[in-house]
């Protein structure tokens, strides 16, 4: 035992230390990397942030629900404007339902109500639903970009990107 201990000189001790330290660092970094990777989902079921929504002629006057379940967007055509309205309630982020009989959006969580225009009128919602950016592509199709939002109370509904004249 004592001989083997003596055979480890200073130079060798430092090279052992270096190898050990590098191994330890690599193992810790690898472990942290795994933990970090674990925080992200393997499959992302969230809807795409940009999508093509047909041509303006596809929509009748009123509220169109065809993109609601896939993309979380209502297309609303009224008063000569085509609008992409978010379906996230401005109170606490629930998903309101469109009630065709009562002509309003109604949130199932705390009872906020919105007119077809998106303006809030009942329940606790403090502000109107948000609009998404809607543009016409050169071939006449509609492109909806959910990364850009337009808020009524900030006067952003006058922005020409927030609606399309039809």
């Amino acid at each position: 035992m004592s001989e083997s201990k003596k055979s480890l000189n200073r130079r060798e001790f430092f090279s052992f230390l270096a190898v050990g330290w590098i191994t330890f660092t690599a193992a810790t970094a690898g472990l942290l990397g795994l933990v970090f990777r674990f925080l992200y989902p393997n499959v992302n079921f969230e809807p795409e942030m940009e999508f093509i929504a047909g041509i303006p002629g596809d929509y009748d006057n009123g509220v169109d629900e065809r993109w609601k379940n896939g993309f979380g967007v209502w297309i609303i055509k009224r008063e000569g404007k085509l609008v992409a309205l978010s379906n996230i309630c401005t109170h606490l982020g629930c998903i309101p339902n469109w009630l065709p009989g009562e002509l309003k959006f109604k949130c199932p969580c705390h009872g906020s109500g919105f007119y077809p225009s998106g303006i809030n009128f009942e329940g606790p919602a403090p502000r109107p639903l948000e609009r998404f950016k809607i543009t016409t592509l050169p071939d006449g199709r509609l492109k909806i970009d959910k990364t850009k939002k337009y808020r009524y109370e900030k006067g952003q509904w006058n922005n020409p990107d927030s609606y399309i004249e039809v």
Binding site: P47, N69, C94, I95, P108, H110
Partner: peptide, 20 residues
């Protein structure tokens, strides 16, 4: 769970219903 759909009524667990 579906991020674009909510049950109606959407209720919290019973111990949070006072908060809701």
């Amino acid at each position: 769970a579906n991020p674009t759909w909510a049950p109606n009524p959407a209720k919290a667990p019973w111990y949070f219903l006072g908060l809701q």
